[in-house]
Design a protein around this nucleic acid. Structure first.
Lengths: 220, 220, 220, 220
DNA sequence: AATGAATGAGGTTTCATTCAT
DNA sequence: GATGAATGAAACCTCATTCAT
């Protein structure tokens, strides 16, 4: 009954998914989530749309698969960099170096993770937020390490806020650097680290109360 | 007091445009550019779509009108805040206070200006980038003011990069604060200012490229 | 409310309508019926749309007014030219000269009369067909004049057909001439007259089936 | 045993395109380009609009497919008819016969090719112009064949003009014949050929200067 | 496992035309 | 009498998604 010869393009499921995610990742990175249609993805992967839906269910889930690949890579890279630092005070600088280095080496992953055309709500936004917070947590952990243990609890919120701010600064600087190419990734990382470190170190040395502003009143 | 019911009477052109921009602004802020349809906007205003097109030409231009309102407001607020500062060292703090205060007072404007679902290219992206760079320029100008005049040219790129980074940190912190509500807007502004100031001051006082720095900052 | 839109009554608004028709005529000639919107017309005339509708009822009737101006002019020109011809054999040539001359002198009128974007059915198509047939009738009358009176009735259909064909040839040649400018209007008219005259004269001088074809034209 | 009901089953791409072009061709012929909507076409084919767009891209391209079918048929018919003529002097007559015969046999093709509601600019207009000029070229080639070789260059423009005029005459006569049905297609073709041939033959025998009226100068 | 064929639903935009002042 | 304001209806086109093989 079955006369069809198994074609060479028929791959085991796992392998084909792998291959599909790779191609989709590249396309999403190039065009952004909104602008890349499922037709485009299917054409880029070299399969038909129904297969995409068979494997991933819908566009959102396909993007999630790409996101996972990119996000896991970045988190692992940062975690390793921060973890290797012996001195907690150097953790931020190490993290920034790793961040800029990662983007420099894999701009597609950056594009997927920090795509600005992602749908507002939904699972993707959640997942992106998750990765962002894992990154922030790495920074936050390093910041907390610099505090004496008796002050950690009270400062927790501030530390979280600062880690978010550091991430935001890094993200914006990356975008600017990608757009203008005005300096090297390494220089950008050092510049930002130089600027952030004094303030972060001061916070860990003095009272965390925001109203008590170190350097708040400039003697002149 | 004016207790005007949303009447469906004929309004003068200027008035109806005003009202339309207000309604569209609110809707765009709530749903984002992509998710808000022209039908929705028309329904919110209480008119039909052709009127929208008669007045604004197309969706993009309608959004631009909303953007202008939001962006001009923010830029004006920041410019005023920074301009009022006598001491250049305090400009960043003043700007951050104004930024957080503005968002606190008009969250819709923030949402319109920093909507993440905007189309990638086109006039809107251009305009948004324009506002962002005007904001960054305000910061950059303040940073430059702290430098001795003989070093300004060489530091220009770094100052631009730092102003972008400061904007990014502020933007991220605003998002976090809006999401979590973990502290007041004022506290968030102070926290960020406290953290950034030492590093920014150091940069202007010390030398990435050492040279003799006379004691004071050159007054403008 | 006045419903009838006859344009030939003595109206107090005659002057205004005259002016309106002139402006609309120019616009229709420039852009064609389909591409000229009522908004455009109103702007070109310098009045508001409701006034247009007050005067002419709708777009179709407004165009009809323009059409009348153009068509009457062409018919009058051709009638005069043909009428002045003493020799019936010269009527076709005279008509062609007048036709090309008219178009050369008033291209807008040509454009309105022979616009190719007019709606297929409806009053306009009817009116255009009317003008075309009045033009053809002028030619037909001249052709008939060349026939001995006892053959006129039987040849009537053929004469009608030929007059249509002559009109078609002239129209196509005008379009080509307007498009290419490869020769003067006068030369084009002479060329066509030269080519048509022998055949037309033969038909009037000999049997209606000069080619001696078995399936030839059989008068009924 | 039912042979073949007009099933709505899934057709292979080529077959469905074929069927779609056929249905669209008929509809465009009946209503004209502007009045036939894509919804109408889809309904006529028995599919939904997206399929139409999937296969043809847009309305213009769908029309182009219909145009190609009609135009190629007419050009081929005329080329064959003219090519088979041994005597160049008979080429015009043969072409006219073929033209009227073609329209008689496929009025829809005529309607598609010579639709008067087509958009002014764009690819369709270009393509229609292309077909028109190919038809005119066939006539022009036949006219040139009748000229002695040493006069061909100087007469080129006139020959082009005359071929356009012949096409125009034929086109107008076809329209009239389709509208009135006053004679058979064959009779119309012969009538026009009879009328044109003497003039065309004279031109090839005498001087091409238009001002030099050939064929018996009429006394004035 | 994989596909070609097909669709539902909705989006932006346009235009002739009329209402209410 | 003339205007600015407003609309009904419909056109073209797109995209994520599924059906039948």
């Amino acid at each position: 009954m079955d006369v069809s010869i198994p074609t060479r393009t028929r791959l085991p499921r796992a392998e084909r998914m792998e291959q599909t995610v790779a191609a989709a990742h590249a396309l999403f990175a190039e065009r952004g989530y909104a602008a890349a249609t499922m037709d485009d993805v299917a054409a880029a992967v070299g399969v038909t749309k129904p297969l995409l839906y068979n494997y991933f269910g819908n566009k959102e889930h396909l993007y999630l698969a790409c996101l996972e690949r990119a996000g896991d890579g970045l988190v692992a890279t940062l975690a390793a960099a921060v973890g290797e630092t012996a001195n907690p005070g150097e953790a931020t600088r190490a993290g920034l170096r790793a961040f800029f280095g990662f983007v420099d080496g894999d701009r597609a992953a950056w594009a997927v993770l920090f795509d600005e055309t992602l749908p507002a709500g939904g699972e993707i936004a959640e997942q992106v937020a998750g990765y962002r917070s894992r990154l922030a947590d790495l920074i936050a952990a390093a910041l907390l390490d610099q505090l004496p243990s008796d002050r950690r609890d009270r400062a927790r919120v501030e530390v979280e806020a600062l880690s978010i701010a550091v991430m935001g600064a890094a993200e914006a600087l990356v975008r600017w650097w990608l757009r203008t190419g005005a300096m090297s990734a390494a220089d950008a990382a050092e510049l930002l680290a130089d600027t952030l470190e004094p303030g972060l170190r001061l916070r860990s040395a003095s009272s965390p109360t925001p109203s008590d502003t170190p350097g708040g009143v400039t003697p002149r």
